[in-house]
């Protein structure tokens, strides 16, 4: 197990290098000069050639691409993601100070999707073709088709403005977290429910379940001891993917609910053309996503010994 974990961590390094290369190349190779963009945005369109040249020199844009990439990667490896142009603060500090709020939202969103999705999927599997099954199916369709921001707005309208149960935005108490995480969770609950349903139906057809029934285990015990454990494995494997969905969702949700998080930071950085901040924050988010997927893989290997001994 230790060997497996070590191996997976070592495999992470080339992926992260490639990720940083992609971020770097997109920011540099696509049409659009960051210095010009920045001047046009940040300094009111005063693009005198001297100022442009000065800024290019200052940002190191005159160095060869390889040298620039080396600066970016070696800096990132030591926790230096450069300084924000607009706020003149270290990018990493800006991200870290907003990370709590984003992680909180993503985790609670994930929790909501599981708390809604898993029981719904189990019920749908138990009553195939019944009305719960229909609800499960509709929820997965709606979840895949509703814009996150719109669900958030509608929840604000109903639960904050009309019923007054939760605040519409801002706030630091737990109840300011309910609506954002619920709207993120509902979007993804359908996917979880559908997966849980098909996985449970498959497990129900397995020999060990029939043996359990044959030897007279009560349905509840059979489900808990044999069924759920096996049926949950596919759900665990998509947790990493789900977390990525949540992370992506926070970009929009944080704006809807005016939460000060990393996602909102990225959007405002793009709008104000704060190019080092975008680059750093995106690299950071991708790293978090890759790391979470690694952790999920390790949990998976721990749950299912076939994975770590296979190959």
């Amino acid at each position: 197990m230790q060997l497996y974990v070590m191996g997976r961590i070592v495999q992470l390094i080339p992926v992260l290098l490639l990720v940083s290369l992609i971020v770097f190349l997109i920011m540099h190779a696509l049409p659009g000069d960051p210095a010009t963009l920045m001047l046009a945005g940040a300094e009111g369109g005063m693009t005198s050639p001297e100022r442009l040249a000065e800024l290019r020199e200052q940002m190191g844009l005159n160095d060869p691409l390889v040298v620039q990439y080396w600066h970016f990667v070696s800096g990132a490896a030591t926790g230096d993601l450069g300084n924000s142009i607009r706020f003149r603060e270290p990018v990493l500090q800006m991200i870290l100070s907003r990370l709590d709020s984003t992680v909180e939202l993503a985790l609670f969103g994930l929790l909501c999707s599981l708390v809604i999705g898993v029981p719904l999927g189990l019920l749908a599997a138990a009553r195939q073709g019944g009305w719960i099954d229909a609800v499960c199916m509709s929820l997965s369709y709606l979840g895949a088709s509703i814009p996150v921001y719109w669900l958030g707005l509608m929840m604000i309208f109903v639960f904050a403005f009309n019923l007054g149960w939760f605040p519409a935005s801002g706030g630091t108490s737990w109840n300011s977290l309910v609506l954002p995480s619920l709207s993120l969770g509902l979007i993804n609950a359908g996917l979880v429910a559908r997966l849980m349903r098909s996985s449970m139906i498959e497990v129900n057809g397995e020999d060990y379940m029939r043996t359990g029934r044959a030897k007279g285990l009560s349905p509840g015990l059979l489900l808990r001891r044999h069924g759920l454990k096996n049926a949950l494995i596919p759900v665990v494997t998509i947790l990493g993917l789900q977390f990525g969905n949540m992370l992506a969702g926070t970009v929009v949700t944080e704006t809807v609910f005016s939460r000060p998080g990393v996602g909102r930071l990225v959007v405002s950085a793009i709008l104000s053309k704060d190019y080092p901040l975008v680059q750093g924050a995106v690299l950071f988010l991708a790293t978090v996503y890759v790391t979470v997927n690694l952790i999920v893989d390790i949990i998976y290997a721990w749950l299912d010994p076939r994975i770590r001994y296979g190959r």
Partner: peptide
Amino acid sequence: AFPSIILALVIIATLGP
């Protein structure tokens, strides 16, 4: 390794809104 909207964000950051 990028959640897909994040990749889209990087590209928009370069191309402009």
